[in-house]
Design a protein around this nucleic acid. Structure first.
Lengths: 147, 147
DNA sequence: TATCGTTACTTTCAATTTGATAGTAACACT
DNA sequence: AGTGTTACTATCAAATTGAAAGTAACGATA
């Protein structure tokens, strides 16, 4: 990579961060992947203030990462389910987790296993075409034409 | 995955987020990977207030993702370089970027190429052992023993 | 029938964080 | 002597956050 000044609005990272760029949102997505769906489940798991949780669930829903579904009419009760976009956030979560495991990994940590063959999962980011690990080969960044 | 309640302090994702869990920090790391090293380069690239930038550079430095190096004695001038931990954040950045490209990708976006063979890079997260894409197989989460 | 518990919030308000603007310190250059 | 560059700090208003309490709609229990 090389560049003096990276155009922010054409950067896919900045685009992502505009939607899930705070810790609470990411932790909510983590818990949603862990199977939680309901307000109080998230609240208890995260120790988050209900005001915050309401706001975060609302923005994640507006942004299309979660969808709100009424699971009971009487009394009216809602649950929050991952959308396709939300489910596709899983690789991001895994890579964040791998970094944390490597650099902030003191003590005992949660681990992940393949549910079928039982092997422990260690996520790595690779280039889909060459299979080379990200970070092992030099990268060239290309800005879009200012059309 | 399955669990009613995920222990936050044993979660590697939560561990990461405690250190780089805000958008400015991640964008600073992005720019650092893009070759920026100096205060004013970051400030101009990000449009960040200098107070914020000072604070974020200081915490990223404390946390060992960046290191501050004096590159001129007279006048005293500092630059910020990625540490090994900072460099290893690159896969996280790529996965965040891939998600943004897929789900927030309207308009023209920055693209990345292998500097040597010229192929475009598309990062995917896979399990290091089986090579299976993360998200394509069921996962079992195991909490650490409460020793 | 009264009260209690559960779920999913909202209200209120103080504390913290943020961001915009301006200023500063140490120099180099002209 | 005056201007420019770099890397900040100071000030302060505005926005965000978080803690605590309250509310609404019900169902279950006594």
């Amino acid at each position: 990579m090389n560049s003096e000044n990276i155009a922010n609005d054409s950067c896919p990272i900045a685009r992502s961060l505009a939607f899930a760029g705070d810790a609470w949102s990411i932790l909510i997505l983590r818990d949603a992947h862990g199977g939680l769906t309901r307000f109080d489940q998230f609240r208890k798991s995260l120790g988050i203030a209900p005001t915050m949780l309401t706001r975060r669930l609302a923005t994640l829903t507006e942004e299309g990462l979660l969808e709100k579904r009424r699971y009971s009419e009487h009394p009216p009760r809602e649950e929050y389910l991952l959308t396709a976009a939300g489910r596709d956030f899983l690789p991001v979560l895994f890579m964040i987790g791998e970094w944390g495991r490597q650099y902030r990994g003191g003590g005992k940590l949660v681990r992940f296993f393949d549910a079928e063959n039982g092997t422990e999962i260690k996520a790595v980011a690779v280039d889909e075409v060459t299979g080379a690990k990200i970070g092992t080969r030099p990268i060239r960044m290309v800005m879009p034409d200012a059309s």
